[in-house]
Every structure is written in structure tokens, then in C-alpha cells.
Amino acid sequence: MQPEWIMGLIGGLLIGLAGAVFLLGNGRIMGASGIVGGLVDGSGRADRSDMWQRIVFLAGVFVTPVLLMPFVGTPDTNATSNIAVLIAAGLLVGVGTRLANGCTSGHGVCGISRFSFRGIIATVFYILAGGLTMVAFRHLLGVI
């Protein structure tokens, strides 16, 4: 196995390439929360073509890891089995990304790369909030 930072860099370049294809091909910003959220709340279902672009994109995200598994190795998400934590986290991520209109891909990757002030500020705030949450829930409360 390669050192983890090399795999991170290679994977990161692929993520950036994905965003570049979405932008230069379709003229859209590749934001995972926006693509999923539009399907969930209906705003991305009004236009049929738009809806199918979202579905096909997500199908690609879902299926590719399955195809790569024989070559890259058996993955493990190491996710907590604490259902209450998973539900709380999912709700927070769902509401938060839609309020902020973006997540790590939209604000982080696509926003920072165009020096978007909102993207940079959003990234600063979600990383700070994440860091403080680790302090509170791992080091003080020991929940995660």
C-alpha cells in the first residue's frame, strides 16, 4: 500500500478532475449536497433533464468504488455503530449543507479554487465547528 498521503493526493486530483469535467462539460458546480438535496426536496426534479443528470452523477459516485474494490482492496468506513450519533450526524449534515448551500465539494473544492469568499468562509467555519466537536465529543464526553 502506498503512503496514505500519496493516495490522498491521487484521489484528490481525481476529485478535482471530476469537478472540472462537471464545470467545463455541463457548466455546473459539482457540489454533492446540492446534487443530492435537489433530488430530495424536489427543487432538482422539476426539470427532467436536470433530474437525470443528478441521478446519473450519483450512480457514478456509488458504483465506481464497487468496480475498484478488487484492485484497491477491501475498504472499511470504520463508522461508529452508535445509531443515535449516526442519526444526529446525518440530520446535522443534511440541514447544515442545505442552509449553507454547499459542503466539502461545493464550498471546499469548487469554491476555494475560484477564491470565492463565501466558499472560504464556509470551509473555515465547518472545519472549526468540526474541530471543536471533536474536542467536546471525543476528548471531553468520550462519545465518538
Binding site: 449534515v93 449543507t97 449553507a100 459542503c103 464550498h107 466537536t133
Partner: peptide
């Protein structure tokens, strides 16, 4: 507010939408 809520959830589970 959205980014703060997202960051909390991101840390709790270690997962984001993508």
C-alpha cells in the same frame, strides 16, 4: 449557521455527503 451545523455532523460521524 449552516456551515457550523454541517461541521458538527461531519465530525460526529466522519462522513459528508459525497
Amino acid at each position: 449557521i449552516g456551515s457550523v451545523l454541517f461541521g458538527m455532523g461531519w465530525a460526529l460521524a466522519g462522513l459528508c455527503p459525497g
